[in-house]
């Protein structure tokens, strides 16, 4: 297969089309603008639909409509726009609609800046709108992994009838790396529940259950799905972890920096390793069954995933945290120092 250089944002758009996505809705926001731009050029050629929506609120609701009509549909955005999409995501979860939303995370809160960040972790893992909401959250760390996860995102989304979020960041979106693109697949036929016109009895896609016992039954069904996902869909990768006396947990771009830092401290004789969650929700708790002496979590945030790591370890080992915020990406040297400090018991930037 031919390797080509592609920007993360463009690669994800192309991979979505190749995965059978035939409807894209979006609104301009940096650092993900190459996605709608690419879709505007290429989606019509694939026989699909591109609409520049008037807002992220409208965009996610267009995904609602198209996905409910049985077509693989997606949107992409960054933090401020993702906040606006959470309303629609809650309705999609309540209505059991699939769909893929990419959040190319940037610095927050508020307008923040356009630099890379992982500050939306809580929002994507806990905050997909009001109510008891969850969706699978995939966190690629290379452009190739973005491409590889795109068909997975659509398949998982349809299997569980819940939206899937791909949590990337400004670096992954803007960076070019060599990628091998998969062969395009044909879009799957619309599922039975899709509203395509009531040739038989009418179908209804709705999230309203006025009677408490009805809504409870609905949410219990969602909870069974959530549990099934927790049991079956945890994904993570370990790097030089087997003999590690200190394990560093990081995802996305932060995991790449940690990988470099692990190599640095290994070269100096310190047995460090990396646990890289690929699913942020469900959090890969199975990666934490065996525990070394020390743990360190590195995030481009004020400390969010670290809470899941502490929950997964249930107090079995101390967990340090090293985070940079505001779009600052730590250097491998800085992280290497944080790993060394973690081993001697200091917690840097706790």
């Amino acid at each position: 297969m031919k390797r080509i250089l592609m920007k993360g944002n463009e690669a994800l758009a192309e991979a979505a089309i190749r995965a059978g996505c035939r409807a894209y809705f979006g609104y301009p926001i940096t650092p993900q603008n190459e996605v709608p731009e690419y879709m505007a050029r290429h989606m019509p050629r694939a026989g699909g639909v591109f609409v520049q929506a008037e807002s992220e609120i409208a965009a996610i609701n267009m995904v609602h409509g198209a996905s409910g009509a049985g077509v693989r549909a997606m949107a992409s955005t960054s933090g401020p726009g993702f906040s606006l999409m959470t309303e629609g995501l809650s309705y999609m979860i309540g209505s059991r609609l699939p769909g893929v939303v990419v959040n190319v995370m940037r610095g927050g809160p508020g307008l923040g800046n356009i630099a890379p960040s992982q500050g939306d972790y809580f929002q994507v893992t806990r905050g997909l709108g009001h109510g008891d909401t969850h969706g699978i959250v995939l966190a690629p760390s290379t452009v190739q992994e973005i491409v590889d996860l795109m068909p997975v995102a659509f398949e998982l989304s349809e299997r569980y009838r819940l939206p899937v979020v791909i949590a990337a960041d400004g670096i992954l979106g803007q960076m070019m790396e060599p990628v091998t693109l998969p062969e395009p697949i044909a879009p799957p036929p619309p599922p039975d529940w899709a509203t395509t016109g009531a040739v038989g009895s009418p179908r209804v896609i709705s999230s309203i259950y006025l009677a408490p016992e009805d809504l409870e039954r609905h949410v219990l069904s969602l909870m069974r799905t959530y549990q099934e996902i927790r049991e079956r869909e945890q994904r993570w990768e370990a790097y030089r972890a087997d003999d590690a006396e200190v394990l560093v947990v990081a995802y996305g771009t932060a995991a790449r920096v940690v990988r470099s830092a692990v190599d640095r401290v290994r070269a100096q004789g310190l047995a460090a390793g990396l646990i890289r969650p690929i699913t942020l929700w469900p959090f890969p708790t199975t990666a934490f069954e065996r525990s070394p002496r020390r743990w360190l979590v590195v995030e481009l945030s004020a400390g969010q995933m670290v809470e899941d790591v502490r929950l997964a370890l249930s107090g079995r080992a101390p967990v340090g945290f090293h985070g940079r915020v505001g779009g600052v990406v730590p250097s491998p040297a800085e992280v290497a120092e944080a790993i060394r400090s973690a081993v001697v018991g200091e917690v840097v930037r706790a």
């Binding site: 670096i171 771009t253 790449r256 920096v257 830092a261 250097s331």
Partner: peptide, 10 residues
């Protein structure tokens, strides 16, 4: 080899 950090300080 596979590249870790794409951000370079030195």
């Amino acid at each position: 080899e596979p590249i870790g950090s794409p951000v370079v300080s030195d």
